[in-house]
């Protein structure tokens, strides 16, 4: 039973728009599994998550008490969300030809399972998961996080 106070101070991440190297559309990933209450919050839109739908930068993936969501990002990063979870894809830079890599996932609440993709392999320091209580830096890794009391 933990309540956290405020939100972890934000890393000085420079705003960065990513254009996919392979097309005009900047797809950053796709939903692989959507169960129960699972939505994608995109700007003012609240889109029911469905298998195969494409994900864009700044999408927020959200599940309700009976919801779960699995997704894969374009660099091969795997994401699993348990119930009552909210995760924002805050930064996704995957431009191997230019040596540019970055991934910032922001877990506001709930349960996240993660395995790393090529961004982490090319640039181990480029991947960060931010939570209300702390920041995780990752090196080629499987991990899981739960934010308690949310």
């Amino acid at each position: 039973m933990v309540s956290f106070m405020g939100v972890m101070s934000v890393l000085p991440v420079v705003a960065c728009v990513t254009f996919s190297a392979w097309g005009a559309e900047s797809i950053v990933g796709s939903v692989k599994t959507a169960q129960g209450g699972a939505v994608v919050l995109r700007g003012a839109d609240r889109i029911p998550a469905r298998e195969g739908m494409h994900l864009l930068l700044n999408d927020v993936l959200a599940t309700s008490g009976d919801g779960r969501l699995g997704a894969i990002l374009q660099d091969g990063t795997g994401i699993g969300l348990g119930p009552n979870t909210e995760l924002k894809i805050d930064r996704f830079v995957f431009e191997p030809a230019d040596g540019k890599f970055g991934l910032l996932l922001r877990l506001a609440k709930g349960v996240l399972a993660y395995f790393s993709g090529r961004i982490a392999r090319f640039s181990p320091d480029a991947v960060t998961v931010e939570t209300p209580v702390g920041v995780v830096g990752l090196r080629g890794t499987h991990l899981a996080i739960t934010i308690e009391g949310t």
Binding site: K32, T33, Q35, R68, L69, G70, A71, I72, G76, G78, I79, G80, L81, G82, P83, T85, V111, L112, A113, F115, G117, A144, T146
Partner: peptide
């Protein structure tokens, strides 16, 4: 117990 729900929906690797 803590993470099973999230782990089970992790995708297959590329």
């Amino acid at each position: 117990r803590l993470f099973g729900a999230a782990l089970e929906v992790l995708p297959l690797p590329e």
